[in-house]
């Protein structure tokens, strides 16, 4: 028996006994990749142990894959993401304003590459927001608000208002005053 405390000799004996025992012998016949016929004898217990080992390893691998690539999968890198649409800022704003539902369905959740004239930059706490303003509404100027990624904050702050710029980011929708883009990067 292969219990704790048995000597090596005892262990060797028991393995041999198991292998030789007709009840436990397992004969597998098949062809090796080389084409010659092989004959392997596997004791059932060892086979079960190997199978259990493979299942456990596969289980651990699956758990790790799920943990790292599904549960902890990284956020999309929007700075290097390919834009789904390239648009002029005033056209986009006008579309949202005149037909919000259809425009929202088309562009919300998409990466947009938007060109226009930078009208200002707001800094609130740790956020830097670039603005394209198009009109004055009930709650001040309305237009497109781009929340910049930290790597692009400095660059947009130093860009003078009135400059033509192209900004890429994720469109999260229209809140009845402004079109909002998050995770934005300055293309030029």
């Amino acid at each position: 028996m292969l219990y704790k405390g048995s000597t090596n000799k005892q262990r060797a004996f028991s393995i041999v006994t198991i292998i030789d025992s007709p009840g436990f012998a397992y004969v597998k016949r098949g062809l090796c990749p080389g084409g010659h016929q092989t004959q392997h004898h596997f004791p059932m217990k060892r086979k079960i142990a190997i199978a259990a080992g493979i299942i456990a390893t596969a289980g651990i691998a699956a758990a790790l894959i799920i943990y790292f690539f599904v549960y902890n999968k990284p956020h999309t890198d929007y700075a290097s993401a390919k834009a789904d649409f390239q648009l002029d800022g005033s056209t986009l704003f006008e579309q949202f304003r005149t037909s919000p539902a259809e425009t929202s369905e088309k562009y919300t959740g998409k990466v947009l590459d938007i060109s226009g004239i930078l009208t200002g930059v707001e800094q609130v706490d740790s956020l830097t927001i670039a603005l394209f303003s198009f009109e004055d509404g009930l709650f001040g100027s309305e237009g497109i608000r781009f929340t910049m990624l930290p790597d692009y904050s400095g660059e947009i702050i130093s860009t003078p208002p009135g400059s033509p710029v192209t900004i890429k980011g994720l469109c999260t929708g229209y809140n009845e005053t402004d079109v909002i883009l998050e995770h934005c990067s300055l293309l030029h």
Partner: peptide, 28 residues
């Protein structure tokens, strides 16, 4: 952090509007 809000000092009218997709989580 992109919440629209307005408060009317006289009537006390207070409104908020939030875009759901603008909520940021730690895990994607």
């Amino acid at each position: 952090r992109q919440v629209n809000s307005a408060l009317d000092q006289q009537s006390g009218e207070f409104v908020f509007r939030v875009l759901i997709k603008s909520f940021q989580f730690e895990k994607a």
